[in-house]
Amino acid sequence: MSFFAYPFMVHALEAGTIVAVMAAVTGWFVVLRRQTFAGHALSVMSFPGASGAALAGLPLPLGYFAACGIAAAAIAAGSRTDNRRNLAQESAVIGAVQVTGFALGFLFLSLYGGILENLENLLFGSFLGITATQVDVLAGVAVCALAFFAVVGRPLLFSSIDDLVARAGGVPVRALEIAFLLVLGLAVASTAQITGVLLVFALLVAPAAAAQQLTSSIAGGIGLSVAIGLLVTWTGLLLSYYTDYSVGFYVTTLAFAVYLAARLFRRLVRS
């Protein structure tokens, strides 16, 4: 039986494709800037966002975006000392923001009362309940995110590679950093609605990390990252459809396998 006959599978494929492309492009910058942990913390923020919105009776997407925006601002504000990136302090700030988010989310859930029912879907996602409206919203967010990278991609790349020289060259490094974190928050917030809070991350980091192992070219790296993301998402959805285990498991396992293969390949080529 072909799975294209089911509307929910078609929606899942559409959403998966949009998410894979957006996450792969954003993730390429995340990996380059070594902000993997920030990406993880921001993706986690959808959990307090969703449970807080449920508690307050607001629409869920509003909660997702608000929580991610606040967290992005907090990370950007706390991660600099003497106007420089300080990796040790930055990781402590991100950890604190993330764990506070989890604690708040758990508090909201207990106050809301529905502790156990939705927890699994919230954390691990479900590709199967995606509506046509959600696909449209996702497409809108993806277009915005990709437009952002098209416009500021060059200066962002410059400041990611050499912060000091970029600053000397007149690039607004700090503003770019904050803007990038906000776009990252936007991208993961929309992705998390579909893949679940804990698994956004596989699509964000693993394809880009594998691509950067294989090529140092910029356009090639981003293209390869998108290709790996799409491949992993589609294969994961198909496997999940035919074997009935969760999409998240397949997507993360495939992505990890691709990353390991890329590392191995690079080591072989070098020697």
Binding site: V31, R34, T36, F37, G39, H40, E120, F124, G196, L198, L199, F201, A202, V205, A206, A209, Q212, Y245, S246, G248, F249, Y250, V251, T252, T253, A255, F256, Y259
Partner: peptide, 21 residues
């Protein structure tokens, strides 16, 4: 470091989802 950790983390969480299933 952080990329290797990140991808491992993603995979481990995926495994968690599998065991939960």
């Amino acid at each position: 470091d952080d990329v290797a950790i990140g991808t491992t983390l993603a995979w481990v969480l995926g495994l968690g989802a599998f065991f939960l299933d």
